[in-house]
Design a protein around this nucleic acid. Structure first.
Lengths: 243, 243
DNA sequence: CGGCACATTGACTGTTCTCAAACGCGGTGG
DNA sequence: CCACCGCGTTTGAGAACAGTCAATGTGCCG
């Protein structure tokens, strides 16, 4: 594994307390008492774009919380092609299977420069037993993983290629920067179950129709209303975009 | 909900111990001691084909173990169409979300006459706290749900319609009876993300190529080797068979 | 500047969808 | 018992869509 680029050990309580994504993350609702049970280091990981967090089959001994960036979880097909099974956004939990399995079931790789916390499973198991709050959170995270898989299926593998690309753009849209950074065409293909050429053509077409406005390489400003319409999520009855 | 067709209460220990699917099911590895903690009835449910177990949004207060039959979990799309998100086979667990959520996230419906056990969440929560075996099983079941979702995506929503139908037939194949009971074409479409006409055409075509041998309405004997080849599961030559 | 990786475009082929019509089976009523 | 109906399935023809192969374009880096 090649994510040992940089890491530091840290006093858990203070650093977790001030973590920006804490309120969305696994340690969400832990009390200071809970943190006192953490007697192993939670490690900071920096994972540059295109680097692998783990491979399918790797020994699974940690759970990861994504603090920034974007991670793809991949299944390899018998023909050697890959299929992206779901994306994890900041606040998401990666590698829950460590709790029940010897090894990881996906290949996990950064689509953007990412920062994560690696939490040894011993920490989780301890807290799982002694903190009902974490225990609940763990179940919650599993639930979230299933829901996200299901949504990924209905959003990214259903309907025409056009609809799928539109949904992916909306999925990747960052409300803060009001822009959308799309992955390489190869990755888009693996996410949507289409070819790179089709992905490319549709994006070019969206640009011609001003649904995407070029800002810089692979970064676009979205016409949210227009794209929602293409995606078949009719703007009319969704009604939470205006202000 | 319309599955109150027939049910009986029962002495948990004895009946679970002798249950045919027990070794694949949630209560898999419970000891007699564990069963003594079960102070609420586990209910037997008979759910005839096409009947609904629960709807998305229904209050979630039980978990179900499927003892026989076949259940589809469905997401409704904004356009009113449905998409089958995964199938549950005997031994599988349905409605785990009850543990963490107020209401169900899927629509669950029988594709074949089915029998289930309904386990109140209070039972699970009690055991989850007091039996490390069940606790582990619950996590295992979540893991299984995620893996099955991921497999569903890569198997049933990837590749050509032909490949998908072949994979579905193999998925539904019953090794004991050496046959395969396929659902209506509508359901096949909702599972594979294709139209009913395409599903119908491909099945007709498989029959012409002796990949499916008609036994009775919607029941076929499979040419396992041939279908595996069509499904792209054999590393061998990506089958173009002329006739 | 050339080379490389990736993205775009074009022309063509093959697949899947759409709309519409015919078929076949099981059930009902004459 | 047979005629008829309803419903899901099958089939057909044409259009829309996506995949393939190949060429070209573009930006980045040494």
């Amino acid at each position: 594994m090649n994510h040992t680029a940089s890491y530091t050990f840290r006093p858990e309580l203070a650093r977790c307390r001030e973590c920006g994504v804490r309120k969305f993350a696994l340690f969400n609702n832990l009390t200071d008492e809970d943190f006192k049970l953490v007697h192993m280091p939670v490690e900071d990981i920096t994972l540059p774009k295109r680097n692998t967090l783990y491979n399918a089959g790797d020994q699974a001994q940690s759970i990861y919380t994504l603090r920034s960036g974007l991670i793809k979880l991949v299944h390899y097909l018998p023909d050697g092609n890959q299929r992206v099974v779901r994306l994890v956004k900041p606040g998401g939990t990666i590698g829950l299977e460590s709790l029940v399995s010897e090894c990881f079931t996906h290949h996990a790789e950064a689509l953007q420069d990412s920062k994560l916390c690696r939490i040894p499973i011993a920490v989780i198991e301890r807290l799982d037993n002694e903190s009902p709050r974490l225990h609940k959170q763990v179940l919650n995270r599993w639930h979230q993983a299933v829901m996200e898989s299901d949504n990924w299926l209905t959003q990214m593998s259903t309907g025409t290629a056009r609809e799928r690309v539109a949904r992916l753009c909306l999925f990747l849209h960052d409300d803060v920067t009001e822009s959308c950074t799309v992955p390489g065409r190869e990755d888009i293909g693996a996410m949507l179950g289409i070819t790179t050429e089709t992905a490319s053509r549709i994006i070019a077409d969206f640009r011609r129709h001003d649904l995407l406005e070029f800002k810089s390489r692979n970064v676009f400003k979205l016409d949210l209303v227009g794209l929602r319409e293409v995606a078949g999520m009719d703007a009319a009855d969704e009604g939470n975009y205006a202000d």
